[in-house]
């Protein structure tokens, strides 16, 4: 029991910290660039990714002894695509406004390398329970990085948080940095983020 708990803890801490899919493995960058200019859209997108990584990891792990090795990637993609389409249909039916704003990006979750990567690297060789935890942890590790980036991009690029005009409300004069809402802004934000995390936080951990 304690061995499992330790394993679960290790999966979580590595996905959120030292082995984070975004800033340590530099995976899933395409969606980091695309959706992080509005916080709300990012939140919905990351929830979709958490849902998909968790369940696709679980499903792939359940089937891992039956999936023939030579068609395993096809099978994984099919499973991932199924969950993504479910997310897309759910959004269309219950959150039509957000679905309209996200447009094709929900469908593009299928191509998120983190999901496929976890299925290949973890789910194929571990049990369903652990795979579920790993999928969830990777999803969360991805999500919080994107949410931080989105927070600053929306704040600096549009002067708003969750659509609320924060600078106007606080009476602070502010000129929107248009570049922050365009793709290059995401490059800058991500680079600064990785720089801070790797240069400051991870280095301190190594030293101690």
């Amino acid at each position: 029991m304690s061995a499992t708990t330790a394993k679960v803890r290790k999966i979580f801490t590595s996905a959120i910290g030292t082995d984070n899919p975004v800033f340590a493995q530099i995976l899933g960058i395409c969606s980091t660039l695309a959706v992080t200019n509005v916080f709300k859209n990012t939140l919905v997108m990351t929830l979709g990714v958490v849902f998909t990584t968790t369940l696709s990891n679980f499903t792939v792990s359940l089937l891992r002894k039956h999936i023939p090795a030579r068609v395993r990637m096809m099978a994984e993609t099919l499973i991932i695509a199924t969950y993504v389409i479910i997310v897309d249909l759910f959004l269309k039916a219950y959150l039509p406004d957000i679905s309209k704003q996200l447009g094709p990006y929900v469908g593009l979750i299928i191509t998120n390398c983190i999901i496929m990567g976890r299925a290949e690297a973890f789910a194929l060789s571990n049990g369903p329970g652990l795979s579920l935890v790993d999928g969830l942890a990777s999803g969360i590790g991805y999500s919080y990085v994107l949410l931080i980036i989105a927070f600053f991009r929306e704040l600096m690029g549009s002067g708003t948080i969750w659509g609320f005009k924060i600078f106007e409300a606080l009476n602070i004069p502010w000129t929107n940095w248009s570049i922050m809402v365009m793709a290059p802004g995401a490059f800058f934000m991500l680079a600064v983020f990785i720089w801070i995390v790797k240069g400051v936080i991870l280095k301190e951990q190594e030293a101690s």
Binding site: L63, H66, P68, M74, A75, L78, T82, I85, L89, A93
Partner: peptide, 20 residues
């Protein structure tokens, strides 16, 4: 295997699609 998996996935997705 792929035929069966595809059939299962498609029925799931189309079921939800019809329902919504």
């Amino acid at each position: 295997f792929m035929i069966i998996l595809t059939a299962v996935c498609i029925s799931l997705v189309s079921g939800i699609s019809v329902a919504t």
